[in-house]
Simulated assay, not measured.
Amino acid sequence: MTARFEEVRLNLPHVEVAAHLYGPEDGRPVIALHGWLDNAATFSRLAPRLDGLRILALDLPGHGHSGHRPVGASYALWDYAYDVLQTAEQFGWSRFSLLGHSMGAIVSVMLAGALPERIERMVLIDGVVPYTGEAEQAPEKLGAALEAQLRVQSKRKPVYATPDQAVAARMKGVGAVSREAAERLAERGLMPVPGGYTWRTDTRLTLPSPLRLTQAHALAFARRVACPTLLVLAEQGLMVQPERQAMLAGLPYDIRRLPGGHHLHLDDEQGARAVAEIAQPFLTDRGALQDSVENRLDEAAATGERGRTR
């Protein structure tokens, strides 16, 4: 399916971001968030299939055509949540839905857990919570991250003689993708440099995290989500480990499993169609779960009030 979109740039107070804007102006607002080292093109098959929605597919800062964070800044998940809020403010969206893949799904859960009153509905593709770390691991993890930051200026991104070489490398990367998917990501993600082509992504995105949420922290965000949430799991994706599956137990999400890999929504038309068939009615139906949503918003608000009085 041919992607029909408007290329937009937004001057947020702290960084400039780029995005693809799909759908009618009066469509229900959706902000779409891609995965780590990907870009807005990850939704180029899926977004055109979702009718009646105003979908803003962001290049998150440090990715695609968006700006990089200033020297000394980092790319924490909660910083991305703030980017999304500032983007919504630019459009005047007090409430909106989220469509997130992988890291974008994780950011979506964190934002929806932190500010449940802002999020109307949520579709997550093969991602829920980040990889976690417990307290006793924190000092060693921070030390390794600080040392990596000291060396970042000497770290060089790979240069490929041709775009096809970059595509071949992306096919084998984390969350391996089909050739056509890699070509779509490369078309937006590559830039010419002396000697060939390299990725636009900020080198700092590959640094180790200085701090990870504990499992208790991560699940607290996931459990405080108050909006109707659809979780699409890829049968050959990155959520197949038993410990990741066990973590989903008890979460009040509508879980659907579909054939395909981690990028099932982008790898081929069949995968994009399958995701669209369940995401479309979910994102456009207001009535079915409204009562339960209002109840859960009340519960989330009560939890917040209790937390503020302690």
Results as ranks from 00 to 15, higher is better:
residue 238 L to G: 05
residue 239 M to K: 02
residue 40 A to Q: 09
residue 100 G to W: 05
residue 231 L to Y: 00
residue 25 E to I: 12
residue 140 E to Q: 13
residue 187 E to L: 15
residue 190 L to F: 02
residue 278 I to K: 02
residue 234 A to Q: 03
residue 272 A to S: 03
residue 233 L to I: 15
residue 112 A to H: 02
residue 109 V to L: 06
residue 23 G to L: 12
residue 68 H to C: 06
residue 220 A to S: 08
residue 189 G to L: 00
residue 127 G to W: 11
residue 21 L to P: 08
residue 309 T to Q: 10
residue 306 R to S: 07
residue 23 G to T: 10
residue 7 E to Y: 15
residue 79 D to A: 13
residue 278 I to C: 05
residue 250 G to D: 04
residue 164 D to P: 09
residue 56 L to Y: 10
residue 133 G to D: 10
residue 151 R to F: 14
residue 18 A to K: 01
residue 143 G to K: 10
residue 213 L to W: 11
residue 139 P to C: 00
residue 26 D to V: 04
residue 16 E to P: 09
residue 105 A to S: 15
residue 57 A to M: 03
residue 244 R to C: 03
residue 187 E to K: 13
residue 78 W to S: 10
residue 6 E to Q: 12
residue 73 A to H: 12
residue 84 V to C: 09
residue 210 P to W: 14
residue 205 L to F: 08
residue 157 K to F: 00
residue 207 L to F: 07
residue 93 W to S: 05
residue 22 Y to R: 13
residue 189 G to S: 01
residue 14 H to N: 05
residue 298 D to I: 11
residue 76 A to Q: 15
residue 297 L to M: 02
residue 221 F to M: 01
residue 303 T to E: 11
residue 65 H to I: 00
residue 175 G to L: 12
residue 142 L to E: 06
residue 220 A to V: 03
residue 238 L to I: 14
residue 203 T to D: 11
residue 36 W to R: 15
residue 80 Y to P: 08
residue 86 Q to K: 11
residue 247 M to N: 11
residue 86 Q to I: 14
residue 187 E to V: 07
residue 219 L to N: 03
residue 161 A to G: 09
residue 257 R to V: 08
residue 300 A to L: 07
residue 116 P to Y: 03
residue 263 H to M: 05
residue 244 R to I: 04
residue 295 N to M: 14
residue 187 E to S: 13
residue 252 P to R: 10
residue 112 A to F: 01
residue 309 T to K: 11
residue 50 L to R: 04
residue 107 V to S: 06
residue 239 M to T: 03
residue 283 L to A: 04
residue 299 E to W: 08
residue 1 M to R: 15
residue 223 R to W: 00
residue 168 A to C: 07
residue 258 L to F: 07
residue 167 V to F: 04
residue 159 V to Y: 00
residue 257 R to K: 13
residue 95 R to W: 05
residue 73 A to G: 11
residue 56 L to K: 10
residue 260 G to F: 05
residue 59 D to G: 08
residue 133 G to H: 09
residue 115 L to R: 11
residue 159 V to W: 01
residue 67 G to N: 02
residue 195 G to F: 03
residue 226 A to H: 07
residue 90 Q to Y: 10
residue 117 E to M: 09
residue 306 R to H: 14
residue 28 R to H: 12
residue 101 H to P: 11
residue 246 A to P: 15
residue 285 D to Y: 05
residue 122 M to K: 07
residue 119 I to E: 01
residue 248 L to F: 08
residue 287 G to V: 14
residue 288 A to D: 09
residue 137 Q to Y: 04
residue 232 V to E: 02
residue 100 G to Y: 06
residue 147 E to K: 15
residue 181 A to H: 05
residue 91 F to C: 09
